[in-house]
Simulated assay, not measured.
Amino acid sequence: MGGSTVLHLPSGPAGVIAKLHPTVLFNICDSYIRRNDQQERVIGTLLGSVSTDGTVEIRNSYTVPHNESSDQVAVDIDYHRSMFELHQRVNPKEVVVGWYSTSSGVSGSDALIQDFYAREVTNPVHLTVDTTFSDETASIKAYVSTILSLGERQLAAQFHEIQLDLRLLEAERIGFDLLKKTMVEKLPNDLEGLEQSIGRLQNMIEVVFRYVDDVVEGRIPPDNSIGRYLAETISMVPKIAPEAFDRLFNDSIQDLLLVLYLANLTRTQLALAEKLNTAAQIL
């Protein structure tokens, strides 16, 4: 048994979490739209930071030119390093944390690209974005890799999916929902966006009410972590009388309507001035 060869099957890194900012997602989709006709997908570098607990926060990205076939892939390393140097001048706190590709999953050539980024950063994150939106949902996944070895010989990179959190503000969530649709007749205005936000808030409150009722009636067992989270959320809500809240909300709506009215009035005046200037030049 002393001279036998052992196949090492490493387990995936435990507790690794990737947090994705929506700007990165929009940059990836934009680079996919601007790709060459011959390219099936685009790849690029992910920038961000890594916390002490191993959480990877992805804040920025840029596209890296590449060529690939069924058995080989070539990445423009000089372009990647030049772009990284330029980003370092603007934001020196952002470092390389991994790379992305516009595909529905891991492909055969990803191991070669992963090996390149593994020389740039320890344990790089591989982010995949399905830009086809075939089922009208954005399939976004994150992976890390470990080396599958046979004795002293490294065979391949084994990818493991990790937890991915998409950090969205409410306005960004509305834009993300629009991005998932293949066709959009028009962008929602501020009032429509506010209506969608209030509707989504009502749905979340109803889910919380149902959960609390089920726990009180004994239909489901209580979860202490959820209870603490709900208690912290409620404690953060300021205590405002219903009349004061209605007055504050109505004042905000009136201010919003006034801004919309002034913006439309300014747009109309500019259009009239342009038409009068064009008519004067013709005469």
Rank of each mutant, 00 (worst) to 15 (best):
D78A: 10
A74R: 13
E40C: 08
M83T: 10
V96G: 04
V95I: 13
H66N: 04
R34V: 09
Q38I: 11
D37Q: 11
N60S: 10
Q88F: 11
V42Q: 04
L25G: 04
S70R: 11
Y79K: 09
H80A: 14
Q38K: 12
Y62E: 06
V96C: 08
N60D: 12
D71R: 11
H80E: 10
I58P: 01
S101A: 15
G54F: 02
H87V: 02
E94W: 07
V90F: 05
V90E: 06
H21E: 12
T63A: 07
S31A: 11
L25C: 06
Q88Y: 11
E40P: 07
R34W: 11
T63G: 05
V42T: 09
V96A: 05
H21L: 07
S49I: 09
I28M: 05
D71H: 15
N67E: 13
D78Q: 12
P22Q: 06
Y100R: 00
Q39K: 13
S31M: 05
N36R: 13
I77H: 14
V96P: 01
S49H: 13
D37V: 15
R81E: 06
H66C: 06
T55D: 08
Q88D: 10
F84Y: 13
G98Y: 00
F26M: 07
D78Y: 12
V96W: 03
T102G: 03
V96I: 15
G48W: 01
S61N: 05
G48M: 02
S31D: 05
E68P: 15
R35G: 09
Q88L: 08
V90P: 03
R59I: 03
T45E: 03
M83F: 15
L47E: 00
Q39W: 09
I43L: 06
G44L: 01
V24G: 01
E85R: 13
P92R: 04
K93T: 15
T45P: 05
C29V: 09
R81M: 06
N27D: 10
S82Q: 12
G98S: 02
R59T: 04
L20Q: 02
D76M: 06
V42D: 02
W99C: 02
Y32F: 07
L86T: 14
V56D: 00
E40D: 15
I58N: 02
H21K: 11
L46T: 00
V90A: 07
Y100F: 09
E85D: 09
V64I: 09
P22E: 05
V56I: 05
S69I: 08
I33T: 13
I43H: 00
L47H: 00
V64S: 01
H87A: 02
D37Y: 14
E68V: 13
G44V: 01
R34E: 15
Q72A: 12
A74H: 13
G48K: 00
Y32E: 03
N60Q: 09
G54E: 03
R59V: 03
S61K: 00
